[in-house]
Design a protein around this nucleic acid. Structure first.
Lengths: 109, 109
DNA sequence: AATATTAATCGTAATATTGCAATGAATAGA
DNA sequence: TCTATTCATTGCAATATTACGATTAATATT
């Protein structure tokens, strides 16, 4: 097998897992940090900054775009990527909510 | 290829990616939620609740234990798992910090 | 038109993950 | 001791991910 049994879990659980997955690679973390910092970026400069091949970065960008974390528009020959503030905020809230539900330290072990 | 080039990224970036990876599966999300709710749990009840094979759940528990998110002690014949509050808090702070750096909506696209 | 630049896509290889059956180890109760 | 229970570990098969070279598509420049 090896296919995740998404049907066994709630929509929220699958959603949160998918969100975590989008962040589950240092290259994507790095890309997001660069985008946050510069607030706008083409693929080329990312290639220089990160040291990965252009094709690889393009794929990571695609994944980030698929989950909605970034958005891009074509500007002549180059593409402008930036954070999608709404989705970013959503992510922030989702993770905060998930980690908020900390139990009252009745720790059993 | 296919091996992540961890050496290209900072320690923090790799760390955050690893943390996200630990959450990047609905089964692990579900397990954590159950542990948070009941605050103590053996593997058996998880098998009943989640509908995955015992071996599969055991593996997910192992992964969660490896990243430190949960801790377990043997209690006779059954094992007691619970959230590690310190690491949980750490996760919370890490993600909050990451998402806090939202730019001042000068959105370019 | 010919060339250069930029980024997406395709094909591939290597590696990682997911899931389960089978087996193993340890304790509890008959 | 024998058996049942509980969970970990091992080994396998299916699938997913990561990475890059090569190619493609589109616009810019000469």
């Amino acid at each position: 097998m090896g296919a995740t049994k998404t049907d066994l879990f709630s929509k929220k659980q699958n959603e949160l897992a998918a969100m975590a997955k989008a962040l589950a690679h240092p290259a994507r973390i790095a890309i997001l940090q660069v985008l946050v910092k510069t607030n706008a970026c083409v693929c080329g400069s990312l290639v220089d900054e990160l040291g990965l091949a252009q094709a690889t970065i393009s794929q990571h960008l695609k994944e980030l775009k698929q989950v909605g974390l970034i958005q891009g528009t074509i500007e002549g020959t180059s593409v402008c990527y930036c954070i999608n503030p709404k989705v970013w905020q959503q992510y922030k809230e989702f993770f905060a909510m998930f980690f908020k539900e900390l139990p009252e330290n009745k720790s059993c072990c």
